[in-house]
Amino acid sequence: MLKGLIDPEFFEAFTSGEADESQHLPVYGTRDPLLGLCPSEVEEESGPAHHRLLRYLRKEVLPTTFCVGCGGGTVLNTFAHAIDEMHIDPREIVCVTGIGCSSWIPSPYFLCDTLHTTHGRAIAFACGVKVMRPDMKVIIIAGDGDLAGIGGNHLIHAARRNLDLSVFLVNNFIYGMTGGQVSPTTPFGTRTTTTPYLNLEHPFKIADVVAAAGGSYVARWTTYHVFQLMESMQNAINKKGFSFVEIISQCPVSYGKMTGTSDPVTLLKQLRDASIHVDDTDGMSEEDLEGKFVVGKLVERQRAEFGDGLRQLISERRESISAELDRGLRQDTSALETGR
């Protein structure tokens, strides 16, 4: 079913003005980008050729179970592109997720060590992983209900602690997997299945919360801004310390159905049109920014990383013990016992 659709010869002919435009009919692909074979050969050897980034995915679970036009798929796609561009070996990545649609983005789809945890606890599990394996990239991808709702406490404390984790919070304003209930980021006044008249609560601006809690790198983008998002993900992964990217995403089915449209294209256009870059907000009041998504890098700061601190502490203690043993001054170690 794979079609390669621009023939380079035709393209050359076209650009030189010699081509007959009516003749630009589909030309079946010349070679598969992954295997370097013609599709006909590929089909014989290993089935149809696919997207070059499928090598980062668990193929046995594709296509995804995401609804039509779900932003989660775009996040997965952008994430795979980000990892591919960074040339990170997926064996050096641990993806930790919670419960909800957004937690399915890396689990099961992204092919790396994957810890799919209980609801809200992804960051807490990830802390244990990262402390033990500082050499691995520990990446958390989960939703607003998971990370900002039930797991909100872990989120702010992880930002405070500043362990080197990368958190990608996919904010679709709704509990999607359970059918569209109000979430901590649902805008004021919105109808959902559990606020059937209107939402009386005010939402978190969750990236701002994390920035205030001490995150080392905090950014916000939408699923429309895929190139900026990809770069932001890369910056977050590279940043030593707790980094956080809020990804505003469309949920056509659970959120869209209650808020006017289930059309993913319209929803994505709304995200695009409501976005304003942080650099363009100078002099704007809170009222001016009502209903807008301030996108871009919100915070980047340098703070001591927690894991480094732990390892430094261990090496100092070990050195001092080693020195003490060498000096043979261990006769009276009762001080250790009652040192508290």
Partner: peptide, 29 residues
């Protein structure tokens, strides 16, 4: 724990404590 090369982390609650313990176990602890 630091004396024997191990890691002690105090968490924000017991939910996080047991979570991190499980995460650490899968990372070799």
């Amino acid at each position: 724990l630091p004396n024997v090369g191990g890691y002690y982390v105090q968490f924000e609650d017991e939910l996080a404590s047991i979570s991190a313990v499980i995460g650490a176990a899968w990372a070799g602890a």
